[in-house]
């Protein structure tokens, strides 16, 4: 077990009322697993994910990641613990005034890598996501899929045991989504990184996850093991879009 949430609750003060975003949730995620979290908007998926690295402090409950109880760690230790928990986001969150290289270098600088080791590691990570030729470009010069690859390289730089993903493909088109999902799968298989992926796209979850937790109203409805089905990779052909569109129409007409 690499992530263990025990009886976690998190509420937010919203105007006069209190909103229970996550309500006494317990969840265990095994090492090497790709674990999906799915549910309607507002179900508490992002909050649950952000609790896993204590980006949100729980009102109650215990969070254990990599055998460390994050909920009781002093601030400095918590920061150290976070270095082995990577995170990627829907909107990538790259520093737009840093080059691709410098973005990936930041976590290494925080860990105190030497200059030489840093350069090597950044290049290694960029090569892994296939963007070594973009090292000197700025995020604004990249496509959405490339930005997410940089974010993945950055999250992997410190060789984390866990990678938390909040809607990593929701801002991307289907082709690009398929590419990112492939990268995540490789991260899991090659480096044994445990991945938690929040999504509201059924296809995404189905194509990559071993287990899926369904959330509703801040609670876990159920966690199920699934057989992965390959993500339908559409080709770049504009005809494909047409076919999809007309097929839908035909189905709804029928």
């Amino acid at each position: 077990m690499v992530i263990s949430l025990q009886n976690i609750s998190k509420s937010y003060q919203q105007h006069q009322s209190i909103l229970q975003a996550v309500h006494s949730v317990s969840l265990n995620i095994d090492k090497g697993e790709i674990h999906g979290v799915i549910g309607a908007s507002g179900a508490g998926k992002s909050t649950l994910l952000r609790l896993m690295n204590v980006l949100e402090t729980p009102d109650q409950g215990t969070i254990v990641v990599n055998n460390q109880t994050l909920t009781t760690l002093p601030n400095r230790k918590l920061r150290e613990a976070r270095r082995s928990i990577g995170m990627i986001f829907q909107h990538f969150n790259l520093v737009s005034n840093k080059t691709v290289f410098d973005n990936v270098a930041v976590p290494l600088e925080l860990t105190g890598y030497s200059k030489k080791a840093k350069v090597d590691r950044v290049n290694e990570c960029l090569k892994f996501v296939g963007l070594e030729h973009k090292a000197e470009q700025y995020p604004a010069q990249l496509s959405g899929g490339q930005k997410q690859r940089v974010a993945i390289a950055r999250a992997l730089a410190n060789r984390p045991a866990v990678l938390l993903c909040d809607e990593p493909t929701s801002a991307l088109d289907p082709q690009t989504t398929a590419g990112i999902l492939d990268v995540l799968k490789t991260v899991n298989q090659e480096f044994g990184v445990t991945i938690v992926i929040v999504s509201h796209e059924m296809d995404v979850v189905r194509s990559i996850c071993d287990k899926v937790t369904v959330m509703d109203g801040g609670k876990i409805l159920e966690t199920v093991s699934i057989e992965t089905e390959p993500y339908m990779i559409p080709d770049n052909d504009p005809k494909w879009f047409l076919e999809q569109l007309t097929e839908k129409e035909r189905n709804s007409n029928a």
Partner: peptide
């Protein structure tokens, strides 16, 4: 954007590191 700061916190940056980096 808030997300930039969140990514910094998730990397384990201290407040000073967040300010300067």
């Amino acid at each position: 954007p808030r997300g930039i700061i969140e990514s910094a916190v998730s990397m384990g940056a201290s407040v000073l590191e967040i300010i300067f980096k």
